[in-house]
């Protein structure tokens, strides 16, 4: 059987690679997020905020590439789902970048020293980091069971978020400090939501059905 449209499929693979690269970039930044919070010097935090522009640029490139493929190649079926999902996944990754940058903004305002809170932040970061890594594996190996598991694991991050927001530290009188802790916890919690959403988009690419439908069956 003759294979046609090789150039299109090369382009499509290159779009997927761009998404994976953006994911890897987010993964690297995510792994150092809580480190920034405890760093003595705030220069590292400033650098993270500045570098967010790079993530935004990568997302814009993915969108432009995807739109070009839709316009010029009239993709259908799995190809179309892949392209649409790349746009959505890139949006999720860009938002993960925003949340990392927001955590760095917190460091620019205040240095959180409460050990227990920092430990919980670190736990959230680790959980999110593992989810993001597994989402890549699930995509590569077309592992639907792993996607199910990742989506469930978002609840673990939510649970730590609740632990933080109901902890003793909120009894302290420093409203500015507790406010910043609350914000940081929310930023990290949102990262989990975005990874969950990426897992759902990958499920859609492979099956053609929205994840909610699969869940309700």
């Amino acid at each position: 059987m003759t294979v046609y449209r090789e150039k299109f499929h090369e382009e499509l693979n290159s779009l997927i690679s761009e998404c994976i690269n953006l994911g890897k970039e987010c993964q690297i930044r995510l792994a150092g997020t809580v480190e920034i919070l405890v760093a003595e010097n705030i220069d590292a935090a400033r650098k993270v905020v500045r570098k967010d522009a790079e993530i935004n640029r990568m997302e814009a490139d993915i969108n432009a590439h995807a739109i070009n493929l839709i316009t010029t190649q009239a993709p259908v079926a799995t190809d179309l789902r892949t392209i649409i999902s790349c746009i959505k996944i890139a949006d999720n990754l860009e938002r993960i970048g925003d949340n990392i940058s927001n955590v760095a903004e917190v460091r620019k305002r205040i240095k959180i020293t409460n050990e227990r809170t920092l430990l919980r932040f670190k736990t959230m970061e680790r959980l999110a980091s593992l989810m993001l890594e597994d989402v890549y594996t699930a995509f590569k190996e077309e592992d639907m069971d792993l996607l199910d598991e990742i989506i469930l694991r978002d609840q673990d991050i939510d649970a730590v978020f609740v632990q933080i927001t109901t902890s003793d530290i909120f009894e302290e009188s420093d409203a500015f400090l507790t406010g910043q802790i609350q914000l940081t916890a929310k930023y990290l919690e949102r990262i989990g939501d975005h990874i969950k959403s990426i897992a759902e988009h990958i499920y859609y690419i492979h099956t053609g059905d929205p994840y909610e439908k699969h869940k309700s069956e």
Binding site: R5, F8, V76, A77, T78, D79, L80, R81
Partner: peptide, 14 residues
């Protein structure tokens, strides 16, 4: 959008 048979998918995708 989501054909059942791989040959259909390959054909409509060109």
């Amino acid at each position: 959008e989501n054909p059942s048979d791989k040959r259909t998918e390959d054909y409509v995708s060109g």
